[in-house]
Amino acid sequence: MNLTLKIWRQKDAQSKGKMVDYKVTEISEHMSFLEMMDVLNEQLINTGEEPVAFDHDCREGICGMCSMYINGEAHGPDRGVTTCQLHMRMFKDGDTITIEPFRAAAFPVLKDLVVDRGAFDRIQHAGGYISVNTSGNTQDANAIPISKHAADEAMDAATCIGCGACVASCKNSSAMLFVGAKVSQYALLPQGQVEATDRVRNMVAQMDLEGFGNCTNTGACEVECPKGISLENIARMNREFLSASIKG
């Protein structure tokens, strides 16, 4: 496949970026999108140009590092996959592919396609955990009875890899799917109940502080989420937040 790539190039966080056109040739349809980017970067290095900076790590859809906005969609046109799992067979020979970083005021661009998703870490630090005294006589979590339904729903929420596709896809750059998933994975389990009130209040407060937009229920986040995190998690977070606010 021969392709034209329109890629966002930005020297650093302070510089103004722009779209730059590149040509890549002899791309196999069996390559992953990131392998295609590797080919482009080899080409750029060989010609003495600065390679395109992009985030990646595990390249198997687990780490949540890759974060490209491809042809107007987070992680590209395929469903239920991250950019590293996107294959070039989704494109046609001669295509022009637009590649941009995830856009949100809360995700500032650091360089080219790399964005700072530290806002997610700070939200997690605000309450996305349970406190367990590990003094040596901690109860085995498996000894606590949990209904199959609750366990399944908690596991579904916990599959969020925090990639930020929800924020990137949302027209309002809202982080509510991410925060909803992180609140839900604990709210559904007995271990999460003890700190439930503080957790949702603190995580929502941090989310608001980071400058994410408000959710208007377009559902774009759910469609583009590589892990299929459901909007039900946002509804659950809303209920948790209302309940926590009433408790005071």
Binding site: R103, A105, V109, N172
Partner: peptide, 21 residues
Amino acid sequence: IKNRKARVVKYAKNNGAANSS
């Protein structure tokens, strides 16, 4: 207004129809 401020730089290409009504 708040939501518009949450994305200062707009996408060069955005396919909103692919994921929302």
